[in-house]
Simulated scan of single mutants.
Amino acid sequence: MSADRLAQGYRECARLTWRHGTTYWWGAQLLPPARRRQVYAVYALCRLADDIVDAPDATTPAQAEATGRELEAFGRRFFDAVATTRDGRPVSEPVLAAIAEAVVAAGIERECFERFFAAMAMDLTTTSYETFDDLLGYMEGSAAVIGEMMLPVLDPVDPAARGPARALGFAFQLTNFIRDVGEDLDRGRVYLPQADLRRYGADPWLRRVTPQWRAALAHEIDRNRELYAEADRGVAMLPPSSARCVATARVLYSRILLRIEEADYDVFSSRIRVPRPEKLWVTATSVLRPQRMTRAAALAESTP
């Protein structure tokens, strides 16, 4: 494949990240260009797979089998692209070529992607999770593994960074689950543990903020912040540019939780977002002091 076509693939990966994963996009701005492209590529792969199972009616009884075949076919194309790239042969699809080049260059293990695709397939048959441990089983392949995929890109200076990277993957996805309750209901899914909802007498299907709903979501937010605190240990285990990247993404994502609290736990009326000026400020500040940023975020989150 020509350099122009490969560059086209990377540009599309960047576009997908900007459109759907702005927190990743802003964090990646603080990485050297080659590693920035790798972040975009890994995100793009996950987004393209997620889009298959999140398409309208993709998981209805009439469509689930066809969606499964589409997901399997995409997985095969990805693994074939990686094998072709390792053999030094060109990949015809620009986006897959960019993704495969990034995966090979970063040395991301095949097993990570096998776990990821297995978790995506779970969305075709599973619409709820009884306990948090059950949810963690799903998130092992849909969240923790994302942290593991990104770790070689971030080039940690301490092998102990794997645990915090996994925790950050869990934290990011739990934030998504809390923020996206309404959107997931539209797909017939509830990712908040059923046992927790029963404990507080909360029913997301009402799509209404009640005292019970506030209590249930506050519980999940507290749990989410514990994961962010665990992830914060890893910032010091990264080289400077990677530490700035991770600190930016961590602070921006966790601010979604603050916005949800400010909205009185209303995740039904509209999608909670962190405004762009705030993203710019966080990104600029973390350039100078990434570890102080995460410590300050943790302190703010622990203050009533």
Rank of each mutant, 00 (worst) to 15 (best):
E301W: 15
G68W: 06
F74M: 10
E12A: 13
S128T: 06
R214P: 08
A100R: 00
C112H: 15
R35S: 09
R250S: 13
Q291H: 05
A284D: 08
S2V: 15
E93A: 12
A41D: 05
V145Y: 07
L6N: 01
A83V: 12
A171M: 05
A297S: 08
R208W: 10
S241L: 11
H219A: 10
T85C: 07
S254E: 04
T125W: 04
M1Y: 06
G88V: 14
V145K: 03
W213V: 04
L45M: 14
L227D: 03
Q173N: 04
D123H: 07
R11W: 14
F78A: 02
P290E: 03
G188N: 13
A106W: 00
V209M: 14
A100N: 03
G188C: 09
I108Q: 03
A297Y: 06
G188D: 11
C46A: 15
L217I: 15
Y191S: 02
C13V: 08
L227N: 03
A218D: 09
P61M: 08
G147I: 10
P204Y: 12
Y200T: 08
R271P: 12
C245G: 01
S241T: 08
G88H: 15
E114N: 01
W281V: 11
S128W: 15
E101I: 05
L48G: 05
W25C: 08
V153M: 13
T127R: 09
R77C: 06
A143C: 05
A297C: 13
G75S: 09
L96K: 01
E72P: 00
T59H: 04
R110C: 05
M237H: 01
V82N: 00
R189W: 03
E130K: 11
A28F: 08
V209P: 07
A300K: 03
E278I: 04
Y228S: 10
R36G: 09
L168N: 03
R19Y: 14
E93D: 15
Q194H: 11
V42F: 11
L299Q: 05
L168W: 00
F116D: 10
R207S: 12
G107H: 03
A102R: 00
A3N: 15
V274G: 03
M1L: 13
A231F: 04
D196K: 02
E301Q: 12
A143Y: 05
V53C: 07
E262D: 07
E148R: 07
G137Q: 06
T303R: 10
F268C: 02
E114W: 05
L154Y: 04
R259I: 06
A105P: 02
V287A: 06
R5P: 07
Y138K: 13
I99D: 00
R223M: 07
I272R: 00
L151W: 09
R198T: 11
R295Q: 14
R189V: 08
L135F: 02
G234Q: 02
A105K: 00
P239G: 06
A300R: 10
S270E: 11
